[in-house]
Design a protein around this nucleic acid. Structure first.
Lengths: 395, 395
DNA sequence: GACGTTAGTTCAACTTGTGAACCTATAGTT
DNA sequence: AACTATAGGTTCACAAGTTGAACTAACGTC
């Protein structure tokens, strides 16, 4: 059973302040009067809390609105310049660092390309730290103004006293990236799996907005999923929930690169599709190759749709989401052409009641939202705690 | 995102009181002093709150314990006789009503058998209402002392302003059982799917105790699962989460009674196993038949273990639970003999990291815990709200 | 300029958890 | 039997929180 923590009157304030801030962030600008309706709090509380937030410079006034025959409403909004957040995407071929303001407008970015199979952790950590300095300089943002750094990495991110990362393809086995970052910067650091941060991005700013129960499916060369239950990303016992790609859909199926057989990824992952369509293994431009396969209307495509529909149907039956988003570069390509067929296949393999409760749609943020999602981890923390900026020296 | 409700100082009390009560229920008896450590609350708060609870008769003193050289500790515990809860199991062949005290000791029970394909809702509702009267009379418990009635039913339970039940096999399509019960009794009524109530029972009182992330798998003639995430049973958008039985594990597999093909249930459900083993369809004593198949060491068994292991592996990869419980009459029979093989098969088909975070064990409560679990719904509500008993007339 | 209307603020009242001081009940010691 | 040490439990002033009611502020209209 869930054991809630001891609560004191101060926690009430923390919780309500966070709720007020989230309301302003997503439904703002709004007047104090409107906020009473949106939050359920009394006018008195709204008054004192907005006073605090204004004093902290976390929110600002945003013009007035006439109210016929009475005092005009003063609109309030989150101050987009109050602080900045940094998102990092550590991928197969590059390390990308992006700087955002609180409204997630990109202020600066820098890319470092990685040579294939040169993913030494020291190198990656150096690139990240250098990238942070570069985007801060480019964006003319002092480090004290940064709320934190979110990092999306491949593999399994084991949360604990020290964040450890296990990523076979990078040769990382229990790499303490969190500790390494803390050694190089005093900014708060948040690390998560890149597929999860991308799911987080779609959930907060993409096609998943407002969903309480959703699954964001990512199809690239690998296949993963972000499961959202009750508005929160599901992490499981050791933060590896969402490994959808290695769901077995046949007892003795195709060989998968994970070593197993019959994994979904071996059928609907980009590599799996190309291999099944007979594309030569030396091909480097996978996107173009997948595009040609999709145009060719080969029977492999029909099969892919069937497998994908089946995989989605299993998610629908087991998790009963209200929305399923398809993302990732390959997912978006397949979905753009074949969404109706995918929906049909999912319908055919799922139970009527949960299928009817679900809508299957494409992601909105494109295939490059890992850094945005990683930065969102920082934003989430800020909106929840709404702690005023402090020096990060001790964190 | 999860939008917490507005909170006031009174909610703090409600939450802390609920936590204190749950602590006493599961870790009790305990002295006030121990409770400060267990709950994190100060001695002062514990003192006033236990005072309230004692005055309400919700908790009682339970003897003393010497403390060397000091004042002895007075032990406190939940008063098992403070109230009673009723659990109902609506199954294919019977309606069972059980009366429990707060410690879930069974005080009375009554069984009504149902004739095959005679599941008219009016009949079932009459049986439930009659059963409530019977167990109250047998147990000599006045109706005012009952905290509520929990009912476990087959099919999908659609929660909303009016609870509607969809159960194909019973011919129920949007049956308003909740409203029908309210017409016949003033007791608070809680309705859920029987597989979920059984999962709830294992989670609270069986092999799932203390687990935050778990899956309780039910294998009978049908196959279902209760997914527990963060200590809470996952329900999804329309309360149908957990339909694991119709997970597709082959693109064009065995015909399932749901109309689909390749459902897990068609392979590892009791019927599916018996059919695959060539047991004549007229057989009535399925348990004996399954027992013979298991003893025969037919290759069908090996296959069943492989499919079950694969199904469990998919749960492990996707949900990353810390524990998986196998229950249901068929699940317990299979598991008793073949658990090591099942574990091996699950290991073979899942990723190492999440597999190592999971333990796969058998349920502890046997195959008849639906009514207990249904009663647990009432208990859960009581422990959370810890509202003193009131007359139920208006509920 | 008076008035009505709507927005926002202030304040006393109430609720809650906490630390410090205090009371209570036992065993051991004189 | 009285005293002391020890540990459990209670009481109370205080800080912090939300709220309804009274109050102030800022506008349009007549």
């Amino acid at each position: 059973m869930a054991r809630p923590e001891r609560k004191t009157v101060r926690d009430v304030r923390k919780g309500n302040r966070g709720m007020l801030l989230r309301t302003l962030y997503f439904d703002g600008p709004a007047s104090r009067h409107e906020l009473t309706g949106l939050t359920g709090l009394s006018a008195a509380t709204i008054s004192t809390m907005t006073g605090d937030l204004l004093a902290d410079n976390i929110i600002v006034e945003a013009g007035q609105v006439d109210s016929d025959g009475g005092r005009p409403r003063v609109l309030l909004r989150v101050n987009p310049g109050y602080g900045h957040v940094i998102g990092v995407d550590v991928a197969e071929t590059h390390v990308r660092v992006e700087l955002f303001d609180l409204e997630m407008n990109e202020k600066a970015r820098v890319d470092y390309s990685l040579r294939p199979s040169h993913h030494e952790i020291e190198l990656v950590a150096r690139r990240i730290l250098a990238g942070i300095d570069v985007v801060l300089a480019d964006g003319r943002v002092p480090a004290e103004q940064v709320l934190g750094v979110g990092i999306g990495v491949p593999g399994i991110v084991e949360r604990g006293p020290d964040t450890l990362i296990h990523a076979k393809t990078f040769g990382w086995d229990g790499v303490p990236l969190g500790a390494m970052m803390r050694a190089g910067t005093s900014l708060p650091v948040f690390i998560d799996n890149g597929a999860k941060t991308m799911g987080q991005a779609e959930l907060w700013f993409g096609a998943g907005r407002g969903a309480e129960h959703a699954v964001i499916v990512l199809i690239g060369s690998g296949v993963g999923a972000t499961v959202v239950a009750g508005g929160v990303v599901m992490r499981g016992a050791s933060n590896s929930a969402g490994e959808w790609g290695h769901t077995k859909i046949a007892l003795d199926g195709r060989q998968c690169r994970c070593g197993g057989r019959g994994c979904l990824e071996a059928y609907i992952g980009a590599e799996g599709i190309l291999e099944r369509a007979g594309v030569p293994t030396g091909t480097t431009d996978w996107q173009a190759a997948l595009g040609r396969v999709l145009e060719s209307r080969s029977p492999v495509i029909e099969e892919t749709v069937a497998y994908l529909g089946m995989g989605l149907a299993n998610l629908i039956n087991l998790l009963n989401p209200e929305r399923i988003l398809i993302g990732g570069w390959a997912g978006l390509m397949i979905g753009r052409d074949l969404l109706p067929g995918i929906r049909e296949a999912a319908c055919a393999h799922s139970l009527a009641q949960p299928y009817n409760a679900t809508s299957i749609v494409l992601g909105e943020l494109g295939p490059d939202a890992v850094a945005l999602g990683a930065a969102t981890l920082v934003l989430e923390e800020f909106l929840n705690t709404s702690a005023p900026l402090r020096l990060h020296a001790a964190s």
